Amino acid sequence: MACSPLEQFAIIQLIPIHIGNLYFSFTNSSPFMPPTISLVLLLVHFVTLNGGHLVPNAWQSFVEMIYDFVPNLVNEQISGASSVKQRFFPLIYVTFTFLSFSNLIGMIPYSFTVTSHFIITPGLPFSPFIGITIVGFQTHGLHFFSFLLPQGVPLPLAPFLVLLELIPHRFRALSLGIRLFANMMAGHSLVKILSGFAWTMLSMGGILYLAQLAPFLIVFALTGLEPGVAIPQAYVFTILLRIYLNDAINLH
C-alpha cells in the first residue's frame, strides 16, 4: 500500500550507523536541529552585517526585539551585580532562541518538531542544570549545600528535610523537559487527529458538504493558535532556568 510523503517520513525514524564498534542512530531530530541553529546564526549574521541599518528594517527590528527582551528577563530574575548577570546572558539568549525557532519550525508542513519528543527534551535542560550546579559550587563552595537545609530547622529534622529538598532539586531538569515535551506534543497531536478527521469527513462526500468543512476550519484555528503555544513554552523554559540559576547564585 502506498504511503503519503508524511507517512514515509514518519516511518523512517531510525537509521543505524555502525563505525567500528561504535553505534550511532540518525533519527528525525538529527537533520532538523542543525538547520534550526544555522537559521538563527544566519539571521543574526545578516542583520548585523556591516553594523546593520541606521533605520532598522523588519528583520533587524525582530532580532533587536529578541536581544532587548532577553536581557530584561535576566535583570528581573537574577539578583546581584550587573557583571554577574551578563555572564549568563549568552546561555539564556541561545536557549530562548533555539527553543522558539525549534517550536515554530515544527509548524511548517512536513517538518519535524524536535521539542515534541521525549528523547530530546530531557537533554535540553540537563547540561544547563549541571552548569548551574557548578556555578553554585564556584560561588559558594561547600556552603552551596546549605540550600538543602533551611535556617532554624531543629537538628532531629535535618536528615528528613535534606532528603525532601534533594529529591525535587534532582528532578528540576527532568520536570523542565517533561513540561516542554507534554505541551508541544499535546498541541501537535490534537492538530494531527483533527486533520485526519477532517480529511475523512471530506472524503465521505454527500449533501452535508458545508458541515464537513467545519473540522477543517477548526484545524486552521488551532494552527493559528499553535504559535501562541510555541513562544510561551520557550519563555517558560527560560524563566524557570533563570530562577534555578538565581537560586544557585544567591542561595534562595
Results as ranks from 00 to 15, higher is better:
163 L>K: 03
98 F>P: 04
23 Y>S: 12
72 N>L: 07
61 S>Y: 01
50 N>M: 13
51 G>C: 01
40 V>D: 05
74 V>L: 01
50 N>K: 14
102 S>D: 09
133 T>Y: 12
147 F>I: 09
46 F>L: 10
171 F>P: 04
69 F>D: 02
68 D>E: 10
121 T>G: 02
120 I>F: 06
245 L>N: 04
203 S>H: 08
185 M>C: 10
58 A>R: 05
175 S>V: 13
123 G>Y: 07
141 G>E: 08
145 F>Y: 12
39 L>Y: 14
177 G>Q: 01
208 L>K: 09
41 L>K: 12
158 A>V: 00
129 F>I: 14
96 F>S: 05
167 I>D: 03
34 P>E: 07
208 L>C: 09
38 S>W: 15
194 L>Q: 04
188 H>W: 04
54 L>V: 15
208 L>Y: 15
204 M>H: 11
186 A>T: 11
113 T>C: 10
72 N>S: 13
220 F>W: 14
229 V>S: 08
13 Q>A: 13
243 I>S: 12
155 L>Y: 11
5 P>H: 01
153 V>C: 05
135 V>E: 11
248 A>F: 01
154 P>C: 00
196 G>M: 05
174 L>I: 15
11 I>N: 08
54 L>G: 13
248 A>S: 10
36 T>Y: 01
83 S>E: 15
142 L>K: 06
206 G>F: 03
28 N>A: 11
36 T>K: 00
129 F>C: 15
251 L>M: 14
47 V>W: 00
184 M>C: 09
238 T>D: 03
143 H>P: 03
248 A>I: 02
249 I>F: 01
95 T>D: 06
122 P>T: 03
24 F>L: 14
61 S>M: 08
30 S>R: 07
48 T>C: 11
58 A>L: 10
63 V>G: 02
132 I>Y: 03
135 V>Y: 04
240 L>K: 10
56 P>S: 04
47 V>G: 02
40 V>T: 07
245 L>S: 02
148 L>M: 06
103 N>G: 15
215 P>A: 05
135 V>F: 04
64 E>D: 09
241 L>N: 04
249 I>G: 00
75 N>G: 10
17 I>Y: 05
104 L>C: 05
231 I>W: 06
206 G>D: 02
211 A>Y: 13
187 G>N: 02
207 I>N: 14
175 S>K: 08
242 R>H: 09
223 T>Y: 09
82 S>P: 14
165 E>M: 14
48 T>W: 06
123 G>R: 07
199 W>L: 09
204 M>E: 11
11 I>C: 06
37 I>F: 10
76 E>F: 08
165 E>G: 12
133 T>L: 14
235 Y>Q: 12
117 H>D: 08
99 L>G: 01
184 M>W: 07
70 V>W: 00
8 Q>L: 13
2 A>S: 14
243 I>Q: 15
138 Q>A: 13
12 I>M: 15
250 N>W: 01
50 N>P: 09
210 L>E: 14
207 I>W: 15
177 G>H: 00
189 S>E: 11
189 S>Y: 10
227 P>I: 06
